[in-house]
Design a protein around this nucleic acid. Structure first.
Lengths: 114, 114
DNA sequence: ACAATCTGCTTGCAAATGCACGCAGAGTGT
DNA sequence: ACACTCTGCGTGCATTTGCAAGCAGATTGT
């Protein structure tokens, strides 16, 4: 009895479209076949962790994110980008402000989620 | 061609014996069959992430540990800023690359490859 | 000695993964 | 109109996962 993988496929498709990649392109970059990716995005198949890892790399998101989405990992608090920047000892104050400004301009001011 | 799962099975067996559990007992608590666990411990099978998660629970270790052992997750050795960026769902691929490039130019970092 | 019960392992077998091949629709260009 | 290319999806098949049933050795009790 597998759990319905609620929205894993939809999430992957969303990430793919956000990157403006075609299904075939993502499949090729991830090294999987395009019919299989199609089935994954529609929730018809239950991709293995290896496939998820490849997809995560191709989508430039962390494997943790996909595993959590697939219910294979509990939600572990990952440091947000801003937290990581402010806590980085190799950056001076001006550099931190610059990075944060760029980041917030990318994602917009509000970043509430789940 | 799958990678030989170097020592995943040996690691699991080690953890099990450290807990003084029999193979059958661990299999039962993890909710998998004992022949299959036997094959996993000897490296003959390539357990799915779901099985690994169940085993991690039964062994009272984190799923991350087993996933890393199985080569499904990178160790957390990357700089946290890059990790946070790549794990951010609100950024597309181009934005991530831009941010990472800026960050690495700031810290003059070594860009490690996969 | 014999049975009972543990240990882990071997063996087919149903079900799922993941893929090669092919199909129809939507542009785009000539 | 026609060819060409790209989009995503349907289908049949080799390979693998994961399990039910059973096997041989070790330990224990009676």
């Amino acid at each position: 009895m597998r759990q319905p993988l609620t929205d894993l496929g939809a999430f992957i498709r969303d990430q793919r479209e956000r990157s403006a990649m075609s299904l075939r392109k993502l499949a090729e970059t991830a090294g999987i076949s395009n019919p299989y990716l199609s089935q994954i995005e529609r929730g018809l198949r239950h991709p293995s962790a290896e496939i998820l890892k490849s997809l995560a790399r191709a989508l430039s998101i962390s494997a943790e994110t996909l595993y959590e989405r697939a219910g294979l990992l509990e939600g572990t608090e990952r440091p947000t980008v801003i937290q990581a920047i402010t806590g980085d000892d190799d950056l001076n104050q001006a550099q931190k402000q610059a990075l944060i400004q760029i980041y917030t301009s990318f994602v917009g001011a509000t970043q509430e989620e789940t």
